[in-house]
Simulated scan of single mutants.
Amino acid sequence: MKSLVFFFILSLLVSLNHAIELDFCVADYSLPRGPEGYACKDPAKVTADDFVYTGFRGEKSITNVFGFNVTLAFSYAYPALNGLGISMARLDLAVGGVVPVHSHRTSEVIVLIKGSIIAGFIDTNDNAYYKKLEVGDVMIFPQAMLHFQVNVGKIPALAFVSLNGANPGLQLTTPSLFGGNLPDELAQKITLISPQEVKRMRKILGGSS
């Protein structure tokens, strides 16, 4: 038993030592990405530009049917995030725009910069937690929970979100159901909506039967 405890402590110390062995691990996009992220770029080739993301600059065009635009600063676009367990996104919502129900592999914190939105999430007991947010308000969406945002103001809304994962993923529920290749018959059965409505949603979202 003592030897097992010793082995556990030794393994923990080795793990902790490995965790602080490098100051950073800027992603090397020339190498394949693994389940734990990208391989590290040669430190001799790392520059200050690797640590700066400029994708949030300027006005963002909104062209989708929902009336929103999301600019993602995930590890595949922002190399310095690799291995750090954090990421960000910019959220632009047109008047009346909606970010439909979606989920991530991580938790998310949102801060509203402009406008007025209703934001919320639904837990595994089907309880909805939602609130009207004003400028400066912050809300958290727990890990993997379905959540959404709706612009209820008279001007376009702007928010920034932070997620505790370098590549947290983004799955929009409605496009996943009707914008992909899920057969109509299955989409109808698992949503309990009519065949006509399934076809209408596919037409809007560009899915294939």
Rank of each mutant, 00 (worst) to 15 (best):
E108K: 03
F24G: 02
Y129W: 12
N164W: 09
Q196M: 00
V98I: 15
L112Y: 09
D137W: 11
V150Q: 02
S15P: 01
N127M: 10
T106S: 15
F24T: 13
A73W: 04
I190N: 06
G207S: 09
G55P: 06
N167Q: 04
I204E: 10
Q196Y: 07
T106V: 07
F74M: 03
S209D: 15
T173N: 10
L192F: 05
F8R: 01
K203I: 02
E59G: 08
K203E: 15
R105D: 08
F178P: 05
P195M: 03
A19W: 07
N167H: 00
L22V: 08
K131F: 11
Y130P: 01
K154F: 06
K45C: 01
G153S: 10
S176W: 06
S176A: 13
G115I: 08
E134Y: 11
R90M: 00
L182C: 04
I122T: 00
D184W: 10
V198S: 04
H18I: 09
V161G: 11
N69P: 04
V70W: 04
D50F: 01
D42P: 09
D42Y: 09
V138I: 14
G115R: 12
G34S: 13
L158C: 00
S208E: 15
P35W: 00
I86R: 03
G153T: 09
T124C: 01
P175Q: 05
L158N: 03
G179S: 06
L170N: 07
K154Q: 14
S75N: 08
V111I: 13
V150C: 00
I193K: 04
L186F: 08
G96W: 08
G136K: 00
Y78F: 15
I122C: 00
F8I: 12
F24S: 14
K132G: 02
S87Q: 07
G97M: 07
N127R: 12
P168L: 01
E36D: 15
E21I: 04
L170Q: 01
L133E: 08
L4T: 08
K45E: 14
A89M: 12
H104G: 00
R200A: 15
V95H: 05
H102M: 00
L31H: 05
V135Q: 14
I113G: 04
Y129Q: 13
D137N: 14
V5E: 11
G207C: 08
F148I: 03
V14W: 10
N127K: 14
L205E: 11
F51D: 09
T124M: 00
G207A: 08
L158F: 03
G179E: 08
S162G: 15
I193R: 00
L91C: 02
T174H: 08
I118T: 09
L22D: 15
P183A: 06
P156D: 03
N82C: 01
L163G: 05
Y53A: 10
T71H: 02
S209W: 13
C40M: 04
A94D: 13
P156S: 08
K45T: 13
T54N: 10
S75K: 03
A44W: 02
L12M: 08
S15I: 03
F24C: 05
V152H: 01
D184L: 06
